[in-house]
Measured scan of single mutants.
Amino acid sequence: CHSECLGNCSQPDDPTKCVACRNFYLDGRCVETCPPPYYHFQDWRCVNFSFCQDLHHKCKNSRRQGCHQYVIHNNKCIPECPSGYTMNSSNLLCTPCLGPCPKVCHLLEGEKTIDSVTSAQELRGCTVINGSLIINIRGGNNLAAELEANLGLIEEISGYLKIRRSYALVSLSFFRKLRLIRGETLEIGNYSFYALDNQNLRQLWDWSKHNLTITQGKLFFHYNPKLCLSEIHKMEEVSGTKGRQERNDIALKTNGDQASCENELLKFSYIRTSFDKILLRWEPYWPPDFRDLLGFMLFYKEAPYQNVTEFDGQDACGSNSWTVVDIDPPLRSNDPKSQNHPGWLMRGLKPWTQYAIFVKTLVTFSDERRTYGAKSDIIYVQTDATNPSVPLDPISVSNSSSQIILKWKPPSDPNGNITHYLVFWERQAEDSELFELDYCLKGLKLPSRTWSPPFESEDSQKHNQSEYEDSAGECCSCPKTDSQILKELEESSFRKTFEDYLHNVVFVPRKT
């Protein structure tokens, strides 16, 4: 048989008469490798580009789960590009990614509803959504962080984005990388972005840091009482949809009607710091009717980097990364020049730590249904340095008659930039024990000054392991946590139920 035959053949030295091919099969003959313009397919066939392209389009058009959109890589027609490569849609070739590779997620039936953290986790790592997304989240724990972890990498949506009755959302900033909504599939009414009845939605994105392009379709905003109209108009300008909307697409009466839409800028007039305090004062603000001013709200939190936005980490279910302080308005003076500047002394802060701070007014709604208010920009203030805590785990070892090696770990709280350490030492008198000992005694162990690591005695271990207080009263049991108490109650309830079950099964009433 021919060298490319495997198993047997019907005619000697003829690659077209093989029972099976050793390498690849091409047009009725066995070959060692697939010549151009053919590609290896499933490690035994040679196919042309049209064959591989037909497989790709067949799966793409069917949208069946589990099928493969075949691509070409290293002269092979394979189910998908290997790690580190992405497909070129024009020629199906796998090309190296520039940075992290995109991950295209194809949605069944063309859309997916995100109504819980669990459903959001199914899209973790996706960068391109081939379909439409509907966000409908009523509640949950730590929602802002969970949504950002699972949806934060999405850069492109081919269909539309719909935010509907998501009472738990305060902001859409968890879509931190969303840059493009194509609108290839539109919501009824030709809408590519749809926001309806979101009672706590206050911000779409921080438009000073976020760009969003909507290729096709219109915007729809109705019944978002805490979303200011200025935020919607800003989205029109940034996304390129200005002029597409009709009169009733953006409701003037049901958007922002319960919001404090600040239209003035508060400026800080005085800032002073110490290692654990920050004193702030800002310019006074009074609405047209000074009785509408209820006070100020001061927001602050630790910020290692200057990239904080107002609604980071917030949701309507209680999660809030900001510390909020309510401040009463100052006494009002008739003389504008003698107006008191409101302020606040922030206490209990960490030394040498940068804080993000902003302040906003708290006002009631005027009778004319106009909203007044003022808010400052987010500023960054760093507390002063102070003395560091003591170095940890000092170790001293003498390696000769004239040297001592000293080692330690950095302090747990540096409280500033540590530039150097101060080492103090003092000579001590020799131990009298060394002169009084009889060095001729056998088995004498000389006193040693070398360091030995501390260890816990058996008594201390027994005390720590004991669940009861000892007789001397030195140790006591740790208080039980809520989960331990709940577990004990469940076990007790189970024992009672099981005992009742045994009584009912074992003891049967005697027939009379």
Rank of each mutant, 00 (worst) to 15 (best):
N340R: 02
S132R: 02
E262F: 10
K277R: 02
P336T: 09
A144S: 15
R369D: 03
L123N: 01
S116Y: 04
E155H: 14
Y191L: 05
S389N: 08
D312H: 09
I181A: 00
G217D: 00
R124S: 11
T323K: 10
L123P: 01
G240L: 15
T386S: 09
L362M: 10
N255M: 08
L362V: 03
M346Q: 07
A251G: 08
D326K: 05
Y380R: 05
R165H: 06
C317W: 13
L294T: 09
W282M: 03
L201D: 00
K267E: 02
C126F: 01
D289T: 03
S158M: 10
E368A: 11
D377A: 10
P388W: 07
D292L: 11
G243F: 08
D328H: 04
G139P: 01
L151I: 05
S400Y: 15
G139A: 04
S116C: 15
L201F: 11
R272L: 11
A303M: 05
K162C: 06
L219A: 10
Q314H: 05
D249T: 15
L345M: 06
F299M: 12
N320W: 14
F221I: 15
Y285L: 14
D206A: 14
L186Q: 06
Y355P: 00
K277M: 09
A259Q: 14
N141T: 09
L266Y: 01
Y194V: 11
S269H: 12
L345H: 06
I327T: 03
L180H: 09
E246G: 15
F299G: 05
Y167Q: 15
S389P: 03
K253H: 12
G373K: 03
C126M: 01
T213Q: 12
Y300T: 03
R247M: 09
N130L: 13
N190A: 14
T113R: 03
L362Y: 13
I232V: 03
S158K: 10
T371A: 09
T364Q: 01
E368I: 12
K177N: 15
R347I: 05
C317D: 15
G295S: 05
S132Q: 02
Q382V: 08
F268C: 02
K209Q: 06
A120F: 05
A356I: 07
A149Q: 14
